[in-house]
Write a protein that binds this DNA or RNA. Sequence first.
RNA 1: GGUGAGAUACUCAAGUGGCCAACGAGGGCAGACUGUAAAUCUGCUGCGCAAGCUUCGGAGGUUCGAAUCCUCCUCUCACCA
Length: 429
Amino acid sequence: MMNFVEELRWRGMLHDIMPETEDYLLKNKTTGYIGFDPTADSLHIGSLVPIIILMHFQKAGHHPIALVGGATGMVGDPSGKSDERNLLDEETLAKNISGVKAQLTRFLNFDNDIENAAQLVNNYDWMKEISLIEFVRDVGKHITVNYMMAKDSVKKRLSSESQTGMSFTEFTYQLFQGYDFYHLYKEKNCMLQMGGSDQWGNITTGTELIRRKAQGKAYALTCKLITKADGSKFGKTAGGNVWLDAKRTSPYKFYQYWLNSSDEDAEKYIKIFTFLDKETIEKLITEHKEAPHLRILQKKIGEEVTIMTHGEEAYKNAIKASSILFGKSTAEDLKTLDEQTFLDVFDGVPQAEVKRSVIENGLEIVPAFAENGFLKSNGEVRRALKENSISVNKEKVKDDFIITTKDLIADKFVLLQRGKKSYFLLKII
RNA sequence: GGUGAGAUACUCAAGUGGCCAACGAGGGCAGACUGUAAAUCUGCUGCGCAAGCUUCGGAGGUUCGAAUCCUCCUCUCACCA
């Protein structure tokens, strides 16, 4: 049997582990869970780490449970937050939960035919049954406020660093999460809770509750939070979060995110986000160091993670799109594309519709960029022109350029571009 | 409830009657260089081709002239109760 803990360790994912956990996991096939917050109707790549942990867990023969926090999502976890959270209304929450559920099924094997099929639970299902009196008597009684206050997540908010203080609601959060663990321990014989290192406090409230209320022993394990070498937040781009949902973040952009990782980060990511074995990874790292400009690591990570998330087909399209957008393709190359290929490549690129007659009459460059919502104002277009950053169909143009029918791609599109990475499509109707 | 401080562009933050479309920093965008990188250098960062126009929490007022002075309002923070 594969050593799950060792696997996480050499991949540099392990942060904190309760004593005896490794031993227990080696000797027993057990059940473990990770909670996912339904703060949006899609997970983003930050959630990929816990997902991958569950995948490793399942691979090692254990039984993974993914918990969707329908109830805890209503309370709001104060960990890592310096401000009070906004609460989600029930309708949004329901939508988010179903979105998150759908995504998790892509990564974990929920097939009941196998022995250690993954399970999906929603803590709202049991939390909704509990009355306040019940909760206060049966759960609250076992945990002292002193214990709760000692948690970092709470201390931080009570200290003078925090401007807003902390509501009772958020203070209670750890009891909710702790109760989840207790519930799964009782109902599903779940012995282990995992999560990001910021969850340590919440997780140990769970093991504490299990110890006091059920005289049981449960285990905990956390993984390192993903950081980036330049200090910026992982999983964010200027355009927002990088989502797992293809509708929110196109596979092309998803792939690009990994491709643009720094060398330093790529060495970490390849261990964390791919399932390649140690030898393969070490070989790749060596190769990469010999020829860093080839970006072997980034490409491999992009390939593995994009295929895992969006499938083979989407990955191939992302590659094709990348080579057209960033290769030495010219206006001529672009014009050889048929409509379908063109649309695949530029899937997700913002676009606007323009009447054919406008192009036939000749469209000046300034209004072409400003009036369709690509750039904010005429002034901005003029500025950009001065910077020599405006291209039409991948060719730099000056302010006297006029778009005509000869610039149409597939007789239907004009590709506008600001700088190297920012595209916009005019679609002729 | 009382007292005090404050609200300036994406963020922080100067500006206390004309020299203010508003110092500076960060962020963002672009150009050069490069590996679609990092670092570095340069330019831009309210609208307008321009004349000019609209901005400094909101509404009024004083003034030839207001981000700056006055009145009221809204909100935030701190201390006290």
